[in-house]
Nucleic acid binder design. Structure first.
Lengths: 227, 227
DNA sequence: GGCAACACATTTGTTGACAGTTTTGGCACC
DNA sequence: GGTGCCAAAACTGTCAACAAATGTGTTGCC
């Protein structure tokens, strides 16, 4: 799959289409490689990606519609800054949307799938948390989360969660690093996944909501350490 | 407010900016003035609005991102068709998002506001439903719904609900016309609004969710009459 | 030395023109 | 009379040049 000369004559890592440029910029903003408040100059980006400026403009339009950048007339695009209140509002949305995802995933997926996931969180992932080895734990958490959203089978839901998750991705990591938080979260995930393995959709939804509410409470409590 | 020569030299009803054109097209698609499957030709729209084609293109890009039109390469934009399964998925989203809106509105708004609304649904609006005078009833229902979303005070939530509501606006009307449905819905709204007036946020959420679940059930039951 | 005003450079916004692709209409052939 | 093919028209996709606005640096005056 490395060399498909027809569709991609250049190196695979060079973004050229609007969609590719958009994805690259979304990634950078979500990782805060481009920090909040930073100005995105069209000319610079056009030079960097080696594409006409019009294409950059289209990508910036898309970012604006996702509220990842703010467009100030005649002054360009600035990376949106998520303040504390907005972060809380995003958590309110995550509570209900991820709750829905858990319910639908329970109805659509096989119990065995979630049983396997629960065992992971009880075994290897517990060891990681105990060791304070959080990076691989976070990675697997995100994979589990994506699996649930995927299994929910509602593309519109998936897109909404994408849109809001990328806005708080760095925040989520900062919450997880708080003392004791990772273990609390892990136990909540185990409880939810076991409910899913038993096929209890409503209970899975309730547990997912409770887990995110408690994460939100942590955010409020430790606001000054996070934002 | 009729004649502000500075900011709007022409008649107020002539859309010129991208935002205005976008709003006009969204309205037409939501009303099915432009029916699903219809092709939107850039040249025609440019001529109709008397703006350069590039501006139409930008509006179409925005519509594409909202999944209101589908862009087929070199073949233009086609109005998206919401099939039965997609309609059900949209209802799943409405259930949780409008439930959240009801909960937040209860927490943020004044009880008197919701009491007044409940009385409307018990008095004048009941008369309308009994008479089969559904058009003004629907109009007030939508106003009440907007008031709740507004009071929820979460712009991102408001935007998400906008995005999905406009896709099923015509469907909602067809469900409401089903025999007996309007009265069932009215009673559910009364129950929810009274919970809101009592300040019972969680109960309001639960009732809103139940109301929309029952609307979804109607949609499933009478699928052949609606789609 | 500080401040205001002007001119220049930089950046964003807008548009028409050109290129590529699909559709349509007509014509010849079977 | 129907069908396949070719050419022309119509439409979308791409871009580079032009226009407008903003920020910056310099100069002159108080």
């Amino acid at each position: 799959m490395a060399a498909r000369a027809k569709t991609r004559p250049r190196t695979p890592s060079a973004p050229e289409t609007v969609a590719e440029i958009l994805a690259a910029l979304r990634e950078r903003i979500a990782n805060q490689d481009i920090p909040p408040g930073a100005k995105l100059r069209e000319t610079d980006l056009a030079a960097e990606f080696d594409v006409p400026r019009t294409r950059i403009r289209e990508a910036l339009n898309a970012l604006e519609q996702r509220h990842l950048v703010e467009r100030i007339p005649n002054r360009g695009a600035v990376v949106f800054r998520v303040d504390f209140n907005q972060a809380l509002r995003i958590y309110d949305l995550r509570v209900v949307l991820e709750g829905l995802a858990a319910r639908l995933a329970t109805q659509n997926g096989t119990p065995a799938r979630w049983k396997r996931e629960a065992d992971l969180f009880k075994g290897p992932l517990k060891v990681m948390v105990d060791r304070g080895d959080l990076e691989p734990y976070i990675e697997h958490y995100e994979a589990m989360r994506r699996a649930i959203i995927e299994a929910a089978g509602n593309p519109l839901l998936a897109e909404m969660l994408d849109t809001i998750y990328e806005k708080t991705r760095v925040l989520i990591r900062r919450i997880l690093i708080l003392p004791g938080r990772a273990e609390v979260g892990r136990l909540q995930h185990v409880a939810m996944l076991e409910a899913m393995a038993r096929g209890h959709a409503e209970e899975a939804e309730r547990l997912r909501r409770a887990g995110l509410q408690s994460a939100k409470a942590h955010l409020e409590k430790f606001q000054k350490y996070i934002l």
